[in-house]
Each structure stands twice: as structure tokens, then as C-alpha cells.
Design a protein around this nucleic acid. Structure first.
Lengths: 223, 223
DNA sequence: TCAAAAGTGTTCGGGTTACACCCATGG
DNA sequence: CCATGGGTGTAACCCGAACACTTTTGA
């Protein structure tokens, strides 16, 4: 038992994990198996342990779900004293990107029926706690972020072609983009390093990696 | 006394309060009067009380300093278990904007020598805890924010002229901007409502308020 | 031989930038 | 009457958006 002079909230993390399946942006969600909010859709979460930063809690949780931790960024901290009916819990929300080829995870103590759902489905669901708010922030942030930072390598760890990269951007934005202009934009800013070629159909496509040196002054207009 | 099964960190807020003095952007800072980090520069902070959201803690603290709470936005949450040598404290950092004509505050229990310093002076100081990190994030965020949101009314509560507004922008950005283009940009987007005129030197200048209806689709290029 | 996919070229229009210029006022 | 500062005009240039077109391969 631990005793303090003043009451202290417990601290937890909530995760918005993005992936790409069938050229669509998807988010990992579950359904609460226990009250409160039993039966509602919810985000994976975990309590922050002693001697563990919130980031470490996130990576631990992601690993326990059975996914490989990828890019992770803090979103927002929710501090409403009454956001959890069981008692005060401060939630630090993060979003993470999960590389594409990973199996659909199973098994979480408090959440079952884990599944990947699209942003449109997010709007239709009925969410536990303030998770809907977190999701709205996360989707907005991700879409803004891809304009000025090289997010996609986290979805796409290997070398990629410009059309493949464009497909990832389309998936995140939920709309089509002009590939020729996209290519020019990337090349003009020296954001890519040519590494080889590959081909599936049509002419051989050049493959690239990100030029991490120029990652700072990154900006794409994206149609 | 309060007892829990698991250890819990205490939760505090740290504040980066911006003002404008002599056409320069300034930040309210103090110097720690007690260990740890005695004598180092530091940001005002406070513990989050029971039944109080972190935002409420911020406004309470700002009021106790003797300033009027203005615009407030969450920045980042710091969770390193060892960021405070006294024990685990999670800090939720916020930045706030303080309207210009306010007296320099005095009196904080743990901080004395409160003063407004410029971003350049921030770089020179030796800071307590991870406050330098918080400041860097805050300054960067503010400078980005003024491009796409009407930040300045929080510095400038009364009606203002375009050149006055431009001066605030210059102060925040730390560089000059082209006033004619700045004016056109604002008017073209219907961001201003004309309310009158005033004059100090030269021809009478028109005074405006923000047109809050159009606040959403706000974007200034700022030369 | 044709369809699909990679990549190039080119045009058009609008927005940003820079700067010249005019006007009103107070000293 | 001139310096100061508010406000307008305008031309050059760049850049994004759209889309036609060429090239390369597999079926």
C-alpha cells in the first residue's frame, strides 16, 4: 500500500494505432468486455507503471497486443476529474503507426473483438469514455502531419516507389492525389534518395528511400 | 491520508505565459528560491488539486500570480519518472497569452524575482527541471499558431489598427513583415470588422475587431 | 497487340512578394 | 513644408493544378 498526504489520480495511456489495409487507413479498436461502458467501442489503454515513462507504457502495451511498436507521438492529455466514473484517471493519449503487413491482433484483458476500422466507421460507433474525442484529434493530426513530415516510412519500412508512396498518402487522406505533381514535389525538395528499381506491371519503377537530411524543411502541397 | 494499491505520481502543471512589452515577445519566468535547482530559472507551476481539471489548475495559478487568464492551450505532458529528484511528478505543460497592459507580477511561494524575458534570453539561462524543453516547444508552437489562428486578440483585447496588429506579429515572429500585403491578406479573407478610426501621427487609421465568424478558415502567409 | 502503369511535358491561373506611390496630419 | 506613418496600386514571378502524352512491360 502507498499513502500520500493529498489524493492522487491514477495515470493511464490511451492508444490510437493506425494501419493501412487494402489501401485504406484503419484504426485498431476493441469493445469493452466489462463495465463501465460495457459493450461500447474503445481504444486500447494501460496504466503507467512505477519507473516507466508514458512512452514506455505505450510500447509495452503495443507489444502485449502483438504488434511491433513503430512511430509514436503524444496527442493530448485528458484531465476531466469525472471522465472515468470509477475514479479519477488522467489519460495521456498517443497515436502510433503500425507497418502494413501485420496480423490482426487478439487478446486484451478488458477489450475483446479487436478489429481495424476505418475513420468513417469511427463516426458511427458509440464510444466509451472520451475516446471519440481522442480519435477525432488523432485523425486530424495524422492528416495534417503527413504534409510536413515523413510519416509514411513508418507504414512502409522498406524502399518504395513513388506510386506506392502516393497510395499511402491517398489512404491517409481518404482521397486521390495527382501522382505526377506529387513526384515532382518530392524530387524538387530532395526528399528522396534513389536506391534501385523494381517492376510489377508496366515499365520498371524507381525505388527510393527518404532523404533524412532534408526531413526538416519538408512540405508537400498534396493537391 | 490517502492510500492506494499501486504507487501514483503527483500531477502538476507548468506554465509558459507570453506577453508583449516594447514590441517584443516576452515570457514570464522566475528563479527558484528553494532546492532542487535553487537559483535556476524556472517556469511557474502548480499541483493539480482534487476535483480540478488541469486547465482549472492553470487559471487558478495565473490568477494567483496576479494576471488575468487569457487564451490557454495544452502543449505537452512530461512523464520521465526521474524528471523531479524529489519524487515522481507528471507535468502537463500549457502556454497562455497575457494581454499587453498588465503590471509585472510579484509573489510566488517557490519562485522569486519574477520577470518577463525574451526568447533570446531564454536560450542563455540555465533552467530547472526540463523547463528549457517546454519553452522551446512553446515558442515554436506559438510562432506556428499565429499563421492559422487569430492569436493576437488575446494580446490585444481592444480594437486595433492594422499596423498595430502587424507590430504584434513582428514581435512574435521576431522579424519584420510587409504591412500592405498583411492588410490585404486580412481583408481578402474577411477576418476584420471595421469599427472606427483613431490617429496618433499621420493620417487617421481605421480600427478593427476580429471577425470571429471567419476564424476557422484563417491563413496568413506572412511574407 | 493492347491495356495498365511509370514517368515527362506543358499550359494556365492565381496568389505571394516586393516595392513604388499617394495622402493625411502634426510639428 | 517636411517628416512620419497609413493606405493603395501594380508588376514580376513562382508555384500548384490539371491533364495530355510518351514509354515500358505483361498478358
Amino acid at each position: 500500500m502507498y499513502t500520500y498526504k493529498h489524493p492522487r489520480p491514477s495515470v493511464a495511456i490511451d492508444l490510437v494505432l493506425f494501419g493501412i489495409i487494402d489501401h485504406k487507413l484503419v484504426i485498431l479498436t476493441g469493445r469493452r468486455a466489462e463495465p463501465p461502458y460495457k459493450g461500447r467501442a474503445s481504444l486500447p489503454g494501460a496504466y503507467v507503471y512505477e519507473d516507466e515513462s508514458a512512452e514506455e507504457t505505450c510500447t509495452r502495451k503495443i507489444k502485449s497486443i502483438g504488434l511491433k511498436p513503430s512511430y509514436l507521438e503524444q496527442l493530448v492529455t485528458l484531465t476531466d476529474p469525472y471522465r472515468d466514473p470509477r475514479g479519477r484517471v488522467i489519460a495521456i493519449a498517443y497515436y502510433g503507426l503500425i507497418p502494413i503487413p501485420q496480423e490482426i491482433p487478439t487478446g486484451d484483458t478488458k477489450i475483446d473483438q479487436m478489429s481495424w476500422i476505418t475513420p468513417e466507421e469511427v463516426q458511427k460507433q458509440s464510444w466509451a469514455f472520451d475516446h471519440k474525442k481522442i480519435l477525432d484529434i488523432a485523425i486530424k493530426r495524422l492528416r495534417a502531419k503527413i504534409q510536413y513530415s515523413a510519416v509514411s516510412p513508418h507504414f512502409f519500412p522498406e524502399e518504395f516507389t513513388v506510386p506506392e508512396l502516393a497510395a499511402v498518402y491517398c489512404a491517409i487522406l481518404g482521397r486521390s492525389i495527382d501522382v505526377p505533381n506529387f513526384r515532382r514535389d518530392l524530387l524538387r525538395q530532395n526528399l528522396l534518395v534513389e536506391v534501385g528499381t523494381k517492376h510489377v506491371r508496366g515499365p520498371r519503377a524507381r525505388t527510393y528511400n527518404w532523404n533524412w537530411k532534408n526531413k526538416e524543411k519538408f512540405f508537400l502541397s498534396l493537391g
